[in-house]
Amino acid sequence: MNPPILKIDNLESYYGPIMAIRGVSLIVEEGQIVTVLGANGAGKTTLLKTISGIMDPEKGTISFMGEKIQGKEPDKIVQKGITHVPEGREVFPILTVEENLRMGAYSRRDKENIHTDLDLVYDYFPILRKCKSQQAGTLSGGQQQMMAIGRGLMARPKIMLLDEPSLGLSPLLTRDIFLIIKRLNVEQGVTMILVEQNAKVALDVANYGYVMELGRIVMSDHSSKLQSSKDIQEFYLGQSEQASERGQKRWKQRKTWR
């Protein structure tokens, strides 16, 4: 097997005085979709921000294709081929859609290919072509999310970090966006790290999953195995066949990792 494209070892990151990541290690193989699940405040977003250089780790290493990249400036990391599609889309509200997309390609030197990539993005998200000269702030939430993914794609990344693409979207739109995410992974060969609260859709598209809690990884397995794990079903998928009978006892139930 090839060496992993991204390998994180014993990473620790602080969010102000709070230790948000407490020694996380994970491995991403090329071509995979790896999902990181967890509740609010588990440290998922901090993990992505540390990978993309927005935050600097206190300890630990991140190696991308064999090269240590922890603590580098975000513009250097984008140039190496890691793009971050941030939580809450973070569009440039009074630039047009097309200008937004072009900003995604800011770090690229190969001008001639940018145009074909723009067409590629428009092919995946036809709706963006229709409103390409509209200001991005006037788009709907779903369109903004598509634009944010498209903008990330414009950097021609080897790895894309997706932070809660389903945030604030209807179930139907979430499904559409995840279909496109899967297509991008298969057709364009983009490796992805997908952070999600919506464990069901995330496990459906992902090959491998990690579960984070309070800054630590508490569980990791192939996503099909995670899907059938009892803990995951209880706490993240919310399946509750037995819940009615032991609903009131649930507060007592311990997770296997505690």
């Binding site: 984008v78 630039l95 900003m103």
Partner: peptide, 23 residues
């Protein structure tokens, strides 16, 4: 120009500009 649009972008959403790899 690319730099000019990047300046606008950085002023509209500084965080996003970092994410896009704009120095």
């Amino acid at each position: 120009t690319k730099l000019g649009v990047a300046m606008q972008a950085a002023s509209q959403n500084q965080m996003a500009a970092y994410y896009m790899g704009i120095p």
